[in-house]
């Protein structure tokens, strides 16, 4: 990757958006690398876990008759928003899925906006988004089989002539979900890398912040929302909302 960037004249100008190898590990006779993606994932996971522990302590200590503090208020607002989002799409099944959807929303959101804090966004690595897509695929079909038993499979052959298209359509779901997230975050990362390479050093301190607001904050929030929304639509399509 590095030599290719030099050949394309991108590394000389300082443009930098590739995944970096940080450390080499030999595992079962194979050479694997610790990359910037792993660092980003670790930071995001640690932030989420620490936040969860702090909030849990605060909520357990607070009494119903007290006025809630700053943090508890913000968390209550966020949870209410997430609950309403799940309830608006999934209806009666919302209780079963809100934990999963909220978790994936917070994870993807933090991953997307981690570009603001100098990390390379983990979701700009296809390995991460494809894993998320495959998990969603498994959840869709587990719940479909649980709800409809054999009807889940026979519905694929409802118009017999269209069955190949139906089957391909099922396998296109995780691909399009993961490629959408990856493409959006990656395009933001590439644009920011090119702009940082283009501008001379004294200007890069203030000017790109406007673009960070669009490419990291706005686009990241929209894509986290869209990923959760589409997962919910696909799941409730299989299990029915009545």
């Amino acid at each position: 990757m590095q030599t290719d960037l030099v050949r394309l004249g991108l590394l000389d100008s300082g443009a930098d958006f590739s995944i970096k190898y940080l450390h080499e590990v030999n595992l079962f006779g194979q050479t694997v690398y610790l990359t910037t993606t792993h660092v980003g994932l670790l930071v995001v996971t640690l932030v989420l876990v620490i936040l969860a522990i702090i909030v849990n302590k605060k909520i357990a200590k607070s009494k119903p008759e007290d006025t809630p503090g700053m943090l508890v208020n913000v968390i209550e607002m966020a949870i209410e928003m997430l609950d309403n989002m799940v309830k608006g799409t999934m209806g009666i099944n919302a209780r079963r899925f809100r934990n999963w959807i909220s978790t994936i929303f917070m994870f993807v959101l933090l991953c997307n906006i981690s570009g603001l804090f100098g990390l390379r966004p983990p979701t700009a690595d296809y390995g991460i988004t494809f894993a998320l897509g495959v998990i969603t695929f498994c959840i869709i079909h587990y719940n479909g089989i649980k709800a409809n038993r054999t009807g889940h499979f026979t519905s694929l052959f409802k118009p017999v002539l269209l069955s190949p298209i139906n089957i391909i359509g099922e396998f296109a779901v995780p691909l399009s979900l993961s490629l959408r997230l990856f493409g959006n975050v990656m395009s933001g990362t590439v644009m920011m890398g090119l702009i940082y390479g283009l501008l001379p050093p004294p200007i890069t301190t203030g000017i790109p912040s406007v673009l960070h607001v669009y490419f990291d904050l706005f686009s990241g929030c929209i894509q986290a929302y869209v990923f959760c929304m589409l997962s919910m639509v696909y799941i409730s399509d299989k299990i029915g909302t009545e």
Binding site: R180, G183, M186, V190, Y225, V226
Partner: peptide, 29 residues
């Protein structure tokens, strides 16, 4: 607004396929 965002995200997919092809051509070779 939420319906519009969902529809736009789905419509965006084809453009992102083009973007993926461009990235593959440039860096995966």
């Amino acid at each position: 607004t939420s319906t519009m965002l969902l529809g736009q995200a789905v419509a965006e997919t084809t453009g992102l396929y083009g973007f993926a092809v461009a990235i593959i051509l440039m860096f995966v070779k």
